[in-house]
Design a protein around this nucleic acid. Structure first.
Lengths: 212, 212, 212, 212
DNA sequence: AATGAATGAGGATTCATTCAT
DNA sequence: GATGAATGAATCCTCATTCAT
């Protein structure tokens, strides 16, 4: 029985390992090109498995996409936690970390946009998605709460979250700009968001950028 | 000569009329389902023309998509102008009008998201897009300027624009909510954005929503 | 009546002028790219007329192709005549002139190949084609006759004609060779054909080429 | 291990079998009508497979065309070898066999013409083509060599090859003639080519044909 | 005679998913 | 569990030709 369990454990471990292999391969592929144009064949090849195997782990491609998205959501949540462990949450810092993460992980906001713009999702998928988005939103709520001036903290957190996503959506592919320029600009906008949602606007006096 | 010109004029008018026919048919189709899943055949049928005719007016589907998008951008700009003709631009009003327009015209933000998330665009298309986005952005700039507290007005306007778009992107398809609920929620968020950017927060005292 | 005839004459002249305009435009287009990929629209544009006008002069594209082909056949016939006016027809010269013409007018042998490999032709088209091919073949017959050793001159002329066409078909697009190299090689092969058919082989002692 | 290999072997065999199925189906279709007008759908139907399957074996139609062409080139080479196994290669025999093969396999020369007249080919395709054409050319070289009068054997072989192809190109679809008549005429021309390239012209004394 | 917008059948190719081995 | 060949519906787009003006 024990041996059996061990075996099962091992097998599960193996299975997880292979799942991770697929996940990572797909993740890297998505980082290289628009995830909507990545095919199962490409993923299989990159993961060193067969097409069929991928379907043993995911019922369809959307599930795989979702899994990658969840991984990203968890990761940014972990990052926010790590940076705010020894002290009160800082709005400015949070905005900076989040926008930087989006810049570094195009796939994340691409998928966010995709799912939100039209991708039909199963009830289960929706459930999973809500489950990982809540912790992320909680971090934002905490930071907003710390500002101490908003009557409806959760609503304001949603607004802040929207604003940050909107920055990336609006400028991530600003035509004619290099990735470095876009990063700089979006980080600046995020900083401005932090200041506006915070209360230190008077101190804002940076030079105007020529981005736009 | 005059007759000739008249004839040419009539022909141009006819041509424009048919173009509008196609545009409207496509627009209505897009309003019913995710525009990315609309096919040429469907558009042709809805417009009462042949497939080939559509390609007489647009070199490819992307051009048609773009034309619809441009139409929307012009329309919302006109709406903003009409409402702010007799008085100074009002941030609150602007946010409300814009978010309402997005709610009423899903296609507009769907396309905005699509183009911005990855749709490759020709240089010419980019040019056209910039040309209609500028007037829209100018209205936002005016409203931000009227607030009178921002050192970099244009940058702030961009942030505001991003925030409003972000609201729709983030909640327009919030799973499990009716369209009416989404409209109410996004309008509230937009109102909050207006207050935060307008810095008249003290007056803010609405009850917390249970949306999230 | 006379005036009428003059008018008709003028009109005919005009008509012919326009036909020539179309013909030349198409001919130049064909010289630039594989004639099978040239569209009516392109021809119309190049000729400065409308699509409809082209169909006023030719019932379909095949007729236009044919007309161009006929023009070429007549031209090479004229060239052969011009060069052999003051003396007996010379096999070597004929072969050289013909292969040079093919090199200079890719369209000609491309069309020859096209029609012969599968292009369905109307009875009338066939008739026209035969009508211009006969004079060309007659020149070859004369040259073969002058050799004085062939019992069936016409049959031999056909064989010679085939051999020359075959050279171009076989090597006109020899992969990896420049147009200049191809010209040199095909001219050499044509020279060899002339010698073999002329049976003055003993004099043949050129250095071996490294073409193949 | 052995079992494994056997299995792999079987699978490969199966795969080859299906590939041959597709090849044969396409080949028969091409024999019935101009190969350029054969569609993937038709081939799939004839082969009893799906469209998709065809693309599992060939990346595009051109590859399939090429494969059929290669098969023909190998076949005619084999035929030439079989007939000349016990004795010196005979120019007359070679010409007869080759022209007969072309008559029996229209697809072969149709494709030869197509590829040579303009079909763009990948580098790899060109390589494959050269690889099968060389052995065929070698047989012709041998036959020319046996004649013993040509200083540049390879060049002469090329000329002979061109002449034979030219015969088919020029007369395979001679308008108004039955296939039987065309066969008779082309065989005669090929015989004449053999005689001219050989050295037994004096014995040539056949009656003139009324073919042309 | 000239025009050029309208037509629509028809083309090659893709790709997520299945399922027998 | 792993495999990968088979599937075929569905896609966008082309282009010779027509015909009302």
């Amino acid at each position: 029985m024990v041996a059996q369990n061990k075996l099962v454990g091992l097998k599960l471990q193996e299975k997880d390992a292979r799942r991770k292999l697929i996940l990572d391969a797909a993740g890297q592929l998505f980082a290289q090109k628009d995830f909507r144009s990545v095919t199962v064949r490409e993923i299989a090849k990159a993961a060193g498995t067969s097409i069929g195997t991928i379907y043993n782990y995911y019922t369809n491609l959307t599930e795989l996409f979702l899994d990658i998205f969840l991984g990203h959501a968890e990761e940014i949540t972990r990052i926010l936690d790590a940076e705010s462990s020894n002290g009160p949450p800082d709005l400015k810092h949070l905005c900076s970390l989040y926008i930087t993460y989006l810049n570094d992980n195009m796939t994340f906001y691409q998928m966010m946009g995709h799912f939100m713009l039209g991708g039909e999702m199963s009830a289960e998928a929706t459930h999973k998605l809500n489950k990982v988005m809540k912790p992320l939103m909680d971090r934002i709520v905490n930071a907003v709460e710390a500002v101490g001036i908003y009557p409806d903290v959760r609503l304001t957190a949603h607004t802040l979250f929207s604003a940050l996503n909107g920055i990336m959506i609006s400028y991530a592919r600003y035509p004619g700009r290099s990735q470095a320029e876009i990063r700089r600009h979006t980080v600046r906008l995020a900083g401005l968001v932090a200041e506006i949602f915070g209360k230190d606007l008077p101190y804002y006096n940076q030079r105007r950028t020529d981005f736009l």
